[in-house]
Simulated assay, not measured.
Amino acid sequence: MTGLLDDKVVVVSGVGPALGRAVCLRAAAEGAEVVLAARTQSRLDEIAAQIRDAGGQALTVATDITDDAAVAALVERTVAEFGRADVLVNNAFSVPSMKPLGRTDFEQISSSLDLTVLGTLRVIKAFTPTLSEVQGAIVNINSMVIRHSEPRYGSYKIAKSALLAMSQTLATELGGAGIRVNSVAPGYIWDDQLKWYFGQVAEKYGITAEQVYEQTAARSDLKRLPEPDEIADSVLFLASDMARAITGHTLDVNCGEYHD
Results as ranks from 00 to 15, higher is better:
D252S: 14
A159L: 01
L59P: 10
A32P: 09
I138A: 08
S94K: 13
G55A: 06
T128E: 15
S97H: 04
D221R: 14
R52S: 12
T120C: 14
Y156S: 07
E133G: 13
L225Q: 02
E230R: 02
L194S: 02
V79M: 02
G20V: 12
I47Y: 06
I246H: 12
Q193V: 01
Y188E: 05
H259Y: 12
S97G: 07
N90M: 00
A18P: 01
E107N: 14
T250C: 14
R244D: 15
T247D: 06
T130S: 15
A162C: 13
A49Y: 00
A62L: 11
D252N: 11
A209I: 08
Q211E: 10
N91G: 00
D191N: 11
G256I: 08
E33R: 15
G178K: 09
L4P: 05
L25D: 02
V71R: 06
S97Q: 09
L101Y: 12
M144G: 11
T2L: 09
A171D: 11
G14R: 03
S155Q: 09
V12W: 00
V61C: 09
D7P: 00
V75I: 12
C255D: 04
M98F: 14
V235C: 07
L121P: 03
Q57N: 13
V79Y: 02
Q108W: 14
P186M: 04
A245K: 15
T247I: 14
I47C: 03
V89H: 05
G176W: 10
V235S: 05
L174W: 09
L222H: 04
S110L: 09
F127E: 08
L36G: 10
L88C: 05
L19E: 01
D221V: 14
V15T: 11
K125S: 15
T169R: 10
T172K: 15
P226R: 02
S240V: 06
V9E: 01
Q50T: 09
P228S: 02
A49K: 13
V12G: 01
T250N: 13
A218D: 04
I231T: 00
R21Q: 09
V79T: 13
S143A: 13
T130C: 15
T63I: 07
M242A: 15
E81Q: 15
A243F: 13
N90F: 02
G56T: 07
D233I: 00
D252R: 04
A239F: 03
I189E: 01
I138D: 06
P129W: 14
A245Y: 15
S13F: 01
V145I: 09
E46D: 08
Y156Q: 00
